[in-house]
Design a protein around this nucleic acid. Structure first.
Lengths: 165, 165
DNA sequence: CCTTTGAGTTTAGTTTTTAAACTTAGCCCG
DNA sequence: CGGGCTAAGTTTAAAAACTAAACTCAAAGG
């Protein structure tokens, strides 16, 4: 007898990782959040090889995470900067989840090196409280424990046969 | 004149990625959430090369994400299975954030292949509502937009000098 | 004893990543 | 005009990571 499982290849996690699952992609995105936008900034901050950086930036632009925008410093020729798109900003929860995990389990003895705070870009709010990622269900339950969420097949699920073992 | 930035190398995101930032690590963790625990299950589900799988499992066990537990099928010798530790379960928000991102921007036309639902392990609850990752600050504001959170130096921050540009 | 089986290990070939040297395009200065 | 300067790449060669296939190993069963 056989049972059927969700095909592990047809999965948004796998597709997401095919874009941002390489060693440097998420670090490039993180640096844009700290103000980096130019080729040389990414290169010097991260220490990534230049050809690989060029290739990764291309990948991220093609995937829609970054946007390549021309800029011109006075007295210099036109160059290109790389900015987060809305799709790129949407990676922030992923980065914050990784940050929290790293802070909790791979902590620097001095404490976290970065604290993410609630601070609207308009500057109007004074709330500076630290921000966390939490799990919330559509019925309104929040702060769910990781063990209380389960993966179920969705409309796009493919199945593969597997020995019931 | 120079300005100072948070050292991008001394960062929990970078440390987290050094454990789970390789191509297969998060996929291995994901498979454990779908019930995989044995070497051959990871191998056949993911198609990862066996030597690399052995090496990744070692890395994840050493890092504390997986636990190696002996088991014995009747009429077979003792073997080892790999189970998530509490630290491994704590990666679930990261995986869910990636899943949501992939669903939103790299969607299968048929819809998501996986839906994560609120279902306590004790089976007592009937809540099956879909679960999402949201950002919440310590002051109680939730559903924060990605643009309204800012990275600030924490107690463990190191700084590097950078040209003010 | 001989075969089977799951869980690896070894080995050889391919791909990815690194590091360093090189190229390119425009501005500036003489 | 010509030569130097700079940021942003590209090229190249060597190192590291990954793949696939063959091999090993330890008990179990015939």
């Amino acid at each position: 007898m056989e049972t059927r499982r969700i095909d592990p290849v047809n999965c948004s996690v796998a597709r997401a990782l095919s874009v941002v699952g390489e060693r440097w992609s998420l670090l490039i995105v993180r640096e844009t959040l700290d103000g980096a936008s130019r080729f040389g900034e990414f290169h010097s901050r991260l220490g990534i090889a230049k050809n690989l950086l060029a290739s990764r930036l291309d990948t991220l632009v093609t995937a829609g995470v970054l946007r390549r925008v021309p800029y011109q410093e006075p007295g210099d020729r036109q160059r290109f900067a790389y900015q987060l798109t809305e799709q790129g900003h949407a990676l922030r929860p992923t980065l914050l989840a990784l940050l929290e995990w790293g802070d909790r389990y791979l902590a620097d003895p001095q404490g976290p090196s970065v604290i993410v705070r609630h601070r609207p870009d308009d500057g109007a709010s004074t709330c500076d409280a630290p921000v966390r990622v939490i799990l919330e269900c559509a019925a309104g339950h929040d702060h769910l424990a990781p063990e209380d969420v389960h993966r179920t097949p969705g409309p796009g699920a493919r199945f593969v046969d597997a020995p019931s073992s």
